[in-house]
Design a protein around this nucleic acid. Structure first.
Lengths: 353, 353
DNA sequence: CTGAAAGCGCTTACAG
DNA sequence: CTGAAAGCGCTTACAG
């Protein structure tokens, strides 16, 4: 055992190989462990002198209070659980970054768990969070949101749903206003002069897909354009599915001149498919996305899209939890606005130029 | 309080509002809490009948054992800590996904903390991990790797460094073979016929940058090409820095015909700068990256790059920890190979066609 | 097969 | 200002 690990015992001159508890410090300082506990908290009821001495000893010994022991007596763990479908999804990663930032700032540690969109795993994860006695749970983009409603009632652990499918009246939530944002994006295409506009959605049945499609339809209606079911196709929220859905659109007799996509990842696939067909964006077809992923501005052409403030949404979810922790109970439902970012992937249709 | 939360007490018919501990179950089952503990573990020294009965009661009451209490007596938490520079970095997110997968499979929960590359925050994070009594720590892509060496010796918590700057003899590590992979990538450019090849690095001084540059130089040497300091420029590992560094290269009298970039993110910026200068990839300049991010295959043109098996590297880091947990102590230093993925961003130089 | 007891590392009311 | 005691929710050797 390396000498570094040891420390002279003030009393005996003996060496103590591991300092793990408040009792070890108490022995070194020749006080009771109660006093050590108080000194380490800066309690006013311990003399300044001994407090300082105790802290110095603890510091030198590399003492770290056990969070487990503390949370056992305190009744809260200063811990939250975050369950995500897939951390490799850039939107999700952005949200988690925001959550962690806010959590760290307030002394909370965050457990991260991937559900891979498998309901059984999601159940296992929540179960483990219960055992860990997390003070709150944040769930991002889960399709099994319905699962959390019974949880909310039974669990007694506050749950915040972020862009989730079924935020119920029991659930706290942070949501983007999908309808409004999609309305804006589609309006933008209409204003450019497009008349045949497609919606490339997500076949997996996220509620946000339904809402984005609704915004799209509302814009058409408002402009007096007829809704054509053939112009709605479904990807999977990833480039692969976006490419396949785009292929369907390109196979039609009367091709659309613009496509509004469920998200940027889908748009990425759509744009690639368009190139494969030897067509150009935006000359032949305009493409708009949703999310404004970090990379979207670097695409060729840079992507017109709706910006979701992912980090901020993550921070808001954590703040919601923080409010619940110290306030009286009340339900929080936060709604954020998307922002249309116009770049070069959308332009006036060819025939209009 | 909703009725759902309550349960009949077999003995008294009274209602118990919260079942939180083994004692509550013991009371309901009319046994000692020791027996409950054993039954819940499937200990063989409790009769099958009572064990089943106890489990049924616990299940019905929604009992969840407290991980904190357990870890206090067991001496381990079944928890690991992961510190990352920035979870929004796609490489990092991929690694974390792999770690979490492997951890979940083995019953470990993972704490995630962002350091934002700030040394003070990194120190705070590690400190909190110590208090949480994590069984192990994984650090990804930190530039302050040096900080972990004293930690390793003092901490008594195993630390695995993933693509870190200074994996010392004390540290466990998972690393990609940067030199070899960069050698391959540069060779590829040379074989295409390029003679003026630039290296667009990372000014932040990651060791991986030094190594990738070394691989680049080795390839030049091996081919009898002179190394020109002017052809080495420095970005910041992100598109913005990559774009700026590329501008330097394009401002030179004798422009390079190919650029090998520190990573895909840098390549993204470089490609954009090239377009801004009305030049084409790969017609005017070939571009190669490093990482093979998910999106790299969808770029225009699809990016030639070195694939780093991020998820797998994450899994390996977790496996290393798992070995350390149950094996006798020994140092693990795993090295993985990169794989050159040739796509359309690299081609023969113009003059050779 | 079952229970009483001790102990993991803390916090805090209660005495002095 | 300081200490002894009880208790948070577990596990497990020790008796019976």
């Amino acid at each position: 055992m390396p000498a570094l690990d040891q420390l002279d015992d003030a009393a005996t001159g003996h060496r103590i190989s591991r300092i793990t508890s408040i009792k070890d410090i108490a022995r070194l300082a020749k006080v009771s462990h109660s006093t050590v506990s108080r000194a380490l908290h800066g309690s006013s009821q311990v003399s300044a002198g001994t407090a300082a001495r105790i802290r110095r000893i603890a510091e030198k010994a590399g003492y770290r209070a056990s969070a487990a022991a503390r949370s056992l007596v305190m009744g809260h763990s200063n811990t939250i659980g975050v369950v995500v479908t897939n951390i490799a999804d850039p939107f999700v990663a952005g949200v988690v970054g925001g959550i962690e930032d806010m959590a760290e700032k307030h002394g909370y540690s965050v457990f991260l768990a991937n559900s891979n969109a498998e309901p059984e795993r999601e159940v296992r994860v929540v179960r483990s969070f219960e055992e860990r006695r997390v003070d709150g749970i944040i769930v991002t983009s889960s399709r099994v949101g319905a699962l959390y409603m019974p949880l909310m009632e039974h669990l007694r652990i506050p749950v915040v749903l972020l862009n989730n499918q079924h935020p119920s009246e029991f659930a706290h939530s942070v949501l983007i206003d999908n309808v409004e944002a999609s309305l804006q994006a589609t309006r933008h295409l209409i204003q450019l002069g497009h008349r045949r506009i497609a919606y490339l959605g997500d076949r997996l049945g996220h509620q946000s897909d339904t809402e984005r499609c609704a915004g799209y339809r509302r814009a058409l209606e408002e402009a007096g354009l007829k809704f054509e079911p053939a112009l709605v196709v479904h990807g999977d929220g990833m480039p692969e599915g976006g490419a396949q859905a785009m292929a369907q659109l390109l196979g039609q007799l009367k091709r659309p001149t613009a496509v509004f996509c469920y998200n940027d990842m889908s748009a990425l696939g759509a744009m690639r498919q368009i190139r494969t067909h030897r067509l150009k964006v935006p000359d032949d077809i305009s493409v708009a996305g949703f999310d404004d992923l970090y990379i979207s501005q670097y695409l060729e052409p840079p992507l017109t899209t709706v910006r979701q403030p992912m980090r901020q949404m993550g921070r808001m979810a954590m703040e919601t939890l923080l409010h619940i922790f110290d306030g009286p109970y009340s339900t929080h439902n936060l709604r954020v606005e998307g922002q249309l970012i116009v770049r070069q992937s959308t332009a006036r249709p060819k025939e209009n130029r």
